[in-house]
């Protein structure tokens, strides 16, 4: 069983961070993981991305051309990575910043108003956490409590941040889990 995801957005949205949190959590969960930052032509044009692979067996290629999932936080990322998702895969779209409908009909689209939810929670910088939560809810790549544990460790000593980010994660997770059941709101 392997989960792989490209997480993309613009610099400053925290895509590398949530990728690392995901990889840490996968490792804590006893899985094999790899985290690879932007490379090749993907480095150009307003997106920053990373590829995370979580697997039951040693990770083969850390380079994934056709990921099972893409988590896109801005429009240039949707443009770039929507065509690459594996047929039958998952496309999580940050609808707070992306106002066009995805064109693919052979992938499951999960719409996540990440920034709106983060703002609701008075944690405007937590949009990436909402998005990560949604990915976890939709895939169960790693269980939520493990990710929460990693968040607690990563932001140790900053209690307010821990609480706010865990809340954001949970909101996203609920949304993703709902979508998985087929009841995309």
């Amino acid at each position: 069983m392997q989960n792989d995801v490209i997480i993309a957005g613009f610099g400053g949205q925290g895509v590398l961070l949530i990728g690392k949190l995901l990889a840490y959590a996968g490792m804590r969960d006893g899985k094999e993981v790899s985290w690879l930052p932007s490379y090749g032509p993907e480095m150009r044009g307003g997106t920053c991305n990373c590829t995370v692979v979580i697997s039951d067996k040693p990770v083969g290629s850390p380079v994934v051309q056709h990921p099972r999932a893409a988590l896109v936080l801005n429009l240039p990322s949707l443009e770039k990575f929507e065509p690459m998702v594996k047929p039958g895969g998952l496309l999580l779209v940050n609808t707070s910043l992306i106002h066009r409908e995805p064109a693919r009909s052979d992938v499951t689209v999960v719409k996540v108003p990440a920034n709106e939810i983060a703002n609701e929670l008075a944690n405007p910088r937590g949009a990436n956490m909402v998005a990560l939560g949604a990915y976890l809810g939709a895939t169960e790549a790693v269980s939520l409590p493990v990710v929460e544990e990693i968040v607690r460790e990563t932001f140790a000593g900053k209690e307010k941040l821990v609480t706010a980010n865990i809340e954001a994660l949970r909101r996203g997770h609920a949304l993703g889990a709902e979508a998985k059941k087929g009841g995309q709101p």
């Binding site: 690392k20 094999e32 790899s34 985290w35 690879l36 930052p37 490379y39 850390p62 380079v63």
Partner: peptide, 10 residues
């Protein structure tokens, strides 16, 4: 190569 340098693994 650059991949070995940049990627994170356990």
């Amino acid at each position: 190569d650059g991949l070995i340098g940049q990627m994170m693994e356990p």
